[in-house]
């Protein structure tokens, strides 16, 4: 099975994020960059599928030259090759979905697996847009993925429980947190990744409208949390929860 895994580069979740004084973005000096954790889960799932039934795992990212590092990490985990669609400008989700659709038409994967969202902007849009553009079925928030011939069954995490859906390939699956625990890039894997193909394609060579439809006007850091308050007794607590917080 040929599996395409789109990957995004994001700040390490453990990094303390500082918003620039003018609100135009975040301070990126000394930020550690990693593969979006949900995409890492997608890579892991793709590798497990390949280990079970053979095939090829192709990574694709849309970004700057520095994104090579995250693609190399994915190759070191075990992916076979990678494509970097080079764009110096930051693109919105629609442009990225269009570029990925182009790559999918060219690569003809059996399945595209990607994170349900990126942990930086939390958009949760690319997988769904991609499904619409390609006209493929989609299963978002996957916590279990199984195959039988050209049929795929996915257990989805939905509000209040689990939903099981079945569909034919080709298809889009977006990953949720509990799907798997990603492996580390082993040291032999890191050495092997050196020799794997990492192809660069300029974004503007794909004939796709990249005009942003979305403009980020301003970023604000979250407000400082208010200090808690001590109450003297259980009676007072219940009173406060009922009258002030109005939660009981």
């Amino acid at each position: 099975m040929k599996i395409l895994v789109p990957v995004k580069r994001v700040p390490d979740p453990a990094t303390t994020i500082r918003v620039l004084p003018d609100g135009s973005g975040i301070a990126t000096d000394n930020v550690k960059w990693v593969i979006n954790p949900f995409d890492e889960i997608a890579i892991e799932e793709a590798l497990r599928i390949k280990e079970k039934q053979g095939g090829e795992v192709v990574l694709v990212a849309v970004g700057q030259q520095t994104w090579q590092e995250q693609l190399r990490t994915g190759l070191a985990m075990g992916a076979d090759r990678a494509i970097l669609v080079r764009s110096e400008a930051a693109l919105d989700t629609l442009a990225i979905a269009r570029l990925l659709a182009k790559i999918a038409e060219e690569q003809k994967p059996d399945i595209i697996i990607l994170g349900k969202q990126a942990i930086d902007d939390d958009s949760n849009q690319v997988g769904q847009m991609l499904a619409e553009m390609l006209g493929w079925p989609q299963a978002t928030f996957a916590s279990k993925v199984e195959f039988q011939d050209r049929k795929c069954t996915v257990v989805r995490e939905v509000d209040g429980g689990l939903e099981t859906v079945a569909f034919d390939l080709p298809a889009i699956v977006t990953t949720d947190l509990r799907l798997n625990e990603p492996r580390y890039a082993s040291l032999p894997g890191i050495m092997k990744a050196r020799k794997k193909e990492l192809k660069e394609i300029p974004a503007d060579s794909l004939g796709v409208d990249l005009t942003p439809k979305l403009k980020i006007k301003k970023l604000d850091p979250p407000p400082k949390r208010q200090a808690g308050r001590k109450v003297a007794s259980v009676e007072e607590l219940v009173q406060v929860l009922h009258n002030e917080a109005k939660v009981i």
């Binding site: 453990a14 590092e69 190399r72 990490t73 890039a185 082993s186 040291l187 050495m191």
Partner: peptide, 25 residues
Amino acid sequence: DVLRNVDFFNLDELLTPEERMTRDT
């Protein structure tokens, strides 16, 4: 995260991506 980097002089920049990957693993 007691294992986090202490990198006052941005020495991470002097490491290759492979070296950083090895460290992270």
